[in-house]
């Protein structure tokens, strides 16, 4: 699991990275930008909050992080969010399968927040299934605070990356190619 908890006087960087991908998901950005969520993250030992806000129009409040407050910053898009995911101690993400699996593969603790405004909301299926298997935590924008407050990241089970070999095998057999 990412992040350090060393107690050597200097407060270690513990970043929460929020990502909405290429979508517009103001409800999530608003939810993390509330005082109760930021205070709870601070209490849990996180020092920085970085928000990738995508096509949303809600602008979160920046903060330099004085008086032990969370340092808050945001940006709209980045060609690759891999580095942000890698350096984060906690990821709060929309339910897109791309960012879910990218985060799980890095082993970074993940809270997936489902966008209830989407027309065809099949996305929650995947997040719910992975939450049931304890690979991630699952929340709605309005329950994010409760999820953070009650979260115990120790209980999360690392995700074992999938494997294309079984499909490849079936396809090869179907086409009459021998197994190697």
């Amino acid at each position: 699991m990412g992040g350090g908890d060393r107690d050597n006087g200097v407060k270690p960087h513990k970043t929460v990275f929020v990502t909405v991908g290429t979508t517009c998901f103001d409800a999530l950005v608003k939810a993390v930008d509330t005082r109760e969520v930021k205070e709870e993250l601070s209490r849990k030992g996180y020092t920085h909050l970085l928000i990738q806000m995508g096509r949303g129009s809600y602008i979160p409040t920046k903060s330099a992080g004085e008086d032990g407050d969370l340092t808050v910053d945001y940006f709209t898009f980045s060609s690759s969010i891999a580095d942000y995911l890698k350096s984060a101690s906690l990821v709060i993400s929309h339910a897109g399968s791309g960012s879910i699996f990218e985060t799980l593969r890095l082993g970074t603790p993940l809270i997936v927040v489902v966008n209830e405004d989407l027309m065809d909301n099949h996305q929650s299926e995947l997040a719910e299934e992975l939450a049931e298997r304890k690979h991630l935590l699952y929340a709605h924008p309005q329950t994010l605070y409760q999820t953070i407050e009650g979260m115990n990241l120790e209980t999360l089970i690392p995700y074992v990356p999938g494997d294309a070999r079984p499909v490849a095998k079936v396809i090869n057999r179907f086409l009459g190619f021998p197994d190697d």
Binding site: S97, G98, A164, A168, I171, L175, F177, P178, D180
Partner: peptide
């Protein structure tokens, strides 16, 4: 029976779909 190579059309969706498909292609000879 001839074990000739087969011409293959790979249709890429977008985003997550493409990532999954390319994972599959990596696993094919």
């Amino acid at each position: 029976l001839s074990l000739e190579p087969v011409s293959t059309l790979i249709i890429l969706g977008s985003g997550g779909h493409t990532a999954e498909m390319l994972n599959l292609i990596r696993g094919l000879q």
